[in-house]
């Protein structure tokens, strides 16, 4: 078995790389694939928090590289899904603790046993970014419909194009707010795709559920009623080669959304 190594990157911080990694990883594992998530944000690790695994980490990526433990010992199994593992970043070191070569070796070793290796990349374009993309052959570029995020995504796409090993890269537009787009106050998905001229793999609507799911340490794909959760599930399906139409984010879903819509109609009247 040769697993696919996909790096999730963005350039700009705070656009949702880690949330995206956690959710796509969980969705892929739920569909039966064997998945490893690697947090390469050494010194600023957070993927463990989003998965609710912060109390279970014994060894980290740096421990594996410095041979204090075997690779398998450092893989932390998810609470719910045995198909999902996390290789956490060390919190007490910095990005220079792992080199591109070392991460590449780890990815190659994991490819033998797992279907997907998702690498959560740190923000920026320096050492940490270069290390994170070293083992990958595919990339997902996360951006939001904001000027600074799109500009940084463009820079990242340029760097990915220059890298021979990256065979394909796709765009994921996060935190889309249909109301603002309708009012012409936010760039639409088409605008962003036009500017970046890059293939799309997902559109994730802004969802307050992300905040509560992060609070609980449970990825939002586990919530059947969430719009963002559904959108992430669709991304996972597209990664596995299925053709899924993009979600119609205008329609309110769930009970609370319907109440909100009801109030909005009343307010207008």
């Amino acid at each position: 078995m040769t697993g696919r190594v996909i790096v999730i990157t963005s350039g700009k911080g705070g656009v949702g790389k880690t949330t995206t990694s956690a959710n796509i990883g969980t969705a892929l594992a739920k569909s039966g694939a064997k998945v490893v998530l690697i947090d390469t944000d050494i010194g600023l690790r957070n993927l463990d928090l989003l998965l609710g695994l912060e109390n279970r980490i014994v060894y980290t990526l740096v421990d594996v590289v410095e041979e204090r433990c075997k690779l398998k010992q450092a893989l932390v199994k998810d609470k719910k899904n045995p198909n999902l593992c996390l290789l956490a970043a060390a919190q007490t070191r910095d990005k220079t603790a792992v080199t591109a070569e070392q991460l590449k070796e780890i990815c190659e070793e994991l490819q033998e046993d797992y279907d997907f290796i998702l690498v959560d990349c740190p923000a920026g374009i320096e050492h940490g970014f270069q290390t994170a993309i070293s083992g990958a052959s595919e990339a997902i570029v996360v951006t939001t419909p904001e000027m600074s995020a799109v500009r940084d995504a463009d820079r990242i796409i340029g760097l990915l194009e220059a890298k021979e090993e990256i065979k394909s890269y796709k765009l994921l537009i996060n935190r889309v707010r249909p109301n603002l787009i309708k009012a012409n106050d936010m760039m639409s998905v088409d605008d962003v795709v036009d500017i970046l001229s890059c293939n799309l793999i997902g559109i994730i609507p802004e969802d307050t559920g992300i905040i509560t799911s992060t609070n609980r340490g449970e990825p939002i794909v586990n919530d059947e009623n969430s719009m963002a959760g559904k959108a992430y599930k669709n991304v996972a399906l597209r990664i596995q080669g299925e053709e899924v139409p993009f979600l119609d984010i205008d329609e309110p879903h769930g009970f609370i959304d319907k109440i909100k819509k009801f109030f909005k109609i009343k307010a207008k009247a």
Partner: peptide
Amino acid sequence: SKVIASNR
């Protein structure tokens, strides 16, 4: 969830 979050 905010209580859970701040405790964690």
